[in-house]
């Protein structure tokens, strides 16, 4: 039995490490070649920071990255507020709960291309009011990500004191004020996870963005996709490296903060 366990442990490590190597190999390669000035990954060239310099001179790529961030931050913020308010509303809803849940499930499980065509046709219908572009993309991304915020916040609502809302209104605060000053602080953890989820979903989005961006607006995803036939500019390797390091730093920071909080909680 003991020998069997040992075999399982050794084999497990071998498989996990092999899988991790395969998963990280492409990323590691891009990071390595972000410091080598060559046209393609795998071609030799001088070691330099040239690609980083090129990145900061490549206006198109920088604009695409800026658009991605802008759309991500604003739509995630809107989705978090809207999603949290909605989650509270749905939680207290007597009738129609099922219907609202089915519709939000539909947005989550729907094939993205179907959602994209729907938004596209809506923009055609409203062409006198809205123009495809950044503002329209923010609307689209907000609508897509709200259900995810609702799903993240809802579980925490059942742990909430059900009388909290009445306490706020009984003490004379308006319903809206109660929501923002009494309910929101209680849900802040769920809201932060909801924001992070909405933000990453927005950053990653391609299908809806590509069909609704108009001709002049690019995000990182559409820029890379559209430049692959002509050849992706080597500076994208520098951008990939910066984004990967940023993700890593944020994740490590969140992990350390979480652990510190847990330790503090244990001491008390």
């Amino acid at each position: 039995m003991n020998a069997k366990r040992k075999v399982f442990t050794v084999l497990g490590w071998v498989i996990l490490i092999a899988a991790l190597i395969i998963i990280y190999l492409p990323i590691a390669l891009v990071i390595l070649y972000s410091f080598i000035n060559s046209k393609n990954v795998g071609e030799s060239g001088p070691v330099s920071l040239e690609l980083y310099k090129q990145l900061f001179e490549n206006e198109k790529l920088l604009t695409a990255a800026g658009n991605t961030l802008l759309i991500g931050v604003i739509s995630a913020f809107a989705a978090t507020i809207l999603g949290t308010v909605s989650a509270v509303g749905i939680f207290y809803l007597k009738r129609g709960k099922q219907t609202v849940n089915i519709v939000s499930q539909l947005t989550v499980y729907n094939a993205e291309i179907v959602t994209a065509v729907g938004f596209f046709l809506l923009s055609i219908l409203l062409r006198n009011v809205v123009q495809k572009g950044i503002a329209w993309l923010i609307v689209c991304h907000t609508v897509i990500t709200v259900p995810y915020v609702i799903l993240t916040v809802s579980p925490r609502l059942s742990q909430l004191n059900p009388n909290l809302f009445e306490a706020g209104t009984d003490l004379g605060a308006s319903a809206a004020r109660t929501m923002f000053t009494v309910i929101f602080p209680q849900l802040i953890k769920g809201m932060v996870s909801g924001f992070a989820l909405a933000f990453t979903l927005s950053l990653d989005d391609f299908v809806v963005t590509n069909m609704n961006r108009g001709d002049s607006v690019e995000t990182i995803s559409t820029f890379v996709y559209n430049s692959i036939r002509r050849g992706v500019p080597p500076a994208v390797r520098a951008l990939s490296t910066i984004i990967f390091v940023a993700v890593l730093v944020v994740l490590i920071a969140v992990n350390i903060a979480g652990k510190a909080k847990a330790r503090k909680g244990n001491k008390m």
């Binding site: 999603g83 509303g89 207290y92 809803l93 065509v117 609307v139």
Partner: peptide
């Protein structure tokens, strides 16, 4: 009545669902 009042917070999302989820599918 108060209960109904709190359910009102679901209204913005319900409106968004109708305009941006149901309606585009009808357009489709």
């Amino acid at each position: 009545k108060l209960r109904v009042g709190k359910g009102i917070f679901a209204l913005p999302y319900a409106a968004i669902c109708v305009i941006f989820v149901i309606f585009p599918l009808l357009l489709l």
